[in-house]
Amino acid sequence: MLNRERTPLTGRRVQLMATCLCDAFYDDVAAATVEVLEHAGVEVAFPEGQTCCGQPAFNGGDWPASRRVVRHTVRTFAGEDPVVVPSGSCAAMLFHGAVLEFEKEPDAPAVEALGRRTWELADYLVNGLGVRTWPGRYPARVAFHRSCHSRGTDSVAAALTLLRSIAGLEVVEFGEAEQCCGFGGTFAVTFPHLSGAMGQLKLDHVRAAQPDVYVSGDMSCMMHLGGLAAREGRPIRTLHLAQVLRDALRGGEAKS
């Protein structure tokens, strides 16, 4: 994966890829990401033309459709500045998935170049900028969701480094944490029984750990799990890592 072949960072200017989910549903996550990056001394640009990373069509097997979106994304995030995205899944699409579907395309080098400068948020903060501790305070028991697209990356360790450094915050472990929650993009709607069963299992494990809040670096998993929990009338409180980091700066849990 190209996240292992990055050129070292020089400046402190990034392009934010907000993700389509934050664009449509989770505006506060994108806002928190901006505030967190700015707190870390990073100048954040937001290319207005951005839409989606192209993953839905890629996973669905419609690679021509996906490539169309990826080409748009490559054009939108032009230049040399790194791209930071508050999603391990969208990041992996750009540094791995897109590369796969462009193998035989003439513009593969441009896609690879984008992949090399794309960072998931926690990975960028910890391994890109060298942030090891996060200031502020967040008195809560936090269960951290390891999203599957972070496998084989440094994102989970990075997120845990940040969370564990926050005053008052306790990270609680839960069973089978490495297992998938069952979201899986179109899988969630084409395999609804399996998706739901996997989600229930995840919810059982998380609830058993009795966290105050369930935190992830990917809102897609949280949309699925939070949606399942809400439907059965036992909602769980889900937040993105960026929201926790931002709220810690404000001294504790925010309204959300």
């Binding site: 989770y26 806002a31 709607v189 699925h224 949606g227």
Partner: peptide, 20 residues
Amino acid sequence: AWTASRELPAWRGGEFRRWL
């Protein structure tokens, strides 16, 4: 298929861009 077993979060399309 989504809403058969899950709630859909509130649609807040464009809010982030407006905030920014």
